[in-house]
Amino acid sequence: MRLEVDIRKTLRSRDRTFVLEASFSSQDDLTVIFGASGSGKSLTIQSIAGLVRPDSGRIAVGGELLFDDSQGVNLPTRERKMGYLFQDYALFPHLSVQENIAYPLKKTWYLGLSSGQRQEVAEIMAAFELTHLAGSYPSELSGGQRQRVALARALIKKPSILLLDEPFSALDSMLRHRMRMELLEIRQKFAVPLVVITHDPADVEVFADTLVEFENGKIKEVSRRKKNNSGQG
């Protein structure tokens, strides 16, 4: 999977101006964007997902052009086929685990799921060991369970790429290690390229085939550290 990012964005608030100038590309299926908070990494993956519109530049994932201001291309978020794991998971509080996971499949509230879709939901719940929690609501789940629900929901439509925003920061350190291993397994199983943003060096150790370092809105360094036998992209 080839990820190409070359964007500029200026944010102004009353007393401060932040300029993001991010230009990098990655061929690997495991990319880590590393930097302190406020370094622009979050803005960068939000731009990739289409949640933020860069002022100028170009974004392409796997050869598909998502954004290019010079050509007037700006695909709406819903058409980008991204998986996105929010820092605090953003599970819909009014929906059960099963309904959260089925959310991307069911496009209207008055039609139920087809039997094939129900099967899909059941399978992914089994894969994430969530079957016994199908009827529970997000507020009743532990941190690790929430993350699994969020991952299942993000992966059920087989996204072309999975973006993860500080995926382990909401977990305690014991769980963090376990979920890192789980995420690697999931990547194998679903054959989905990952882009992880983090300020935790331990994530770099585990996930970075390509490491992109941010500092004050600029790219400090892009390095390849291939060791995760991340397969063919």
Binding site: L51, P76, R78, Y84, K107, A154
Partner: peptide, 9 residues
């Protein structure tokens, strides 16, 4: 935002 990413208009 999550709903948009999951394909909603």
């Amino acid at each position: 935002k999550a709903a948009r990413i999951l394909g909603d208009n």
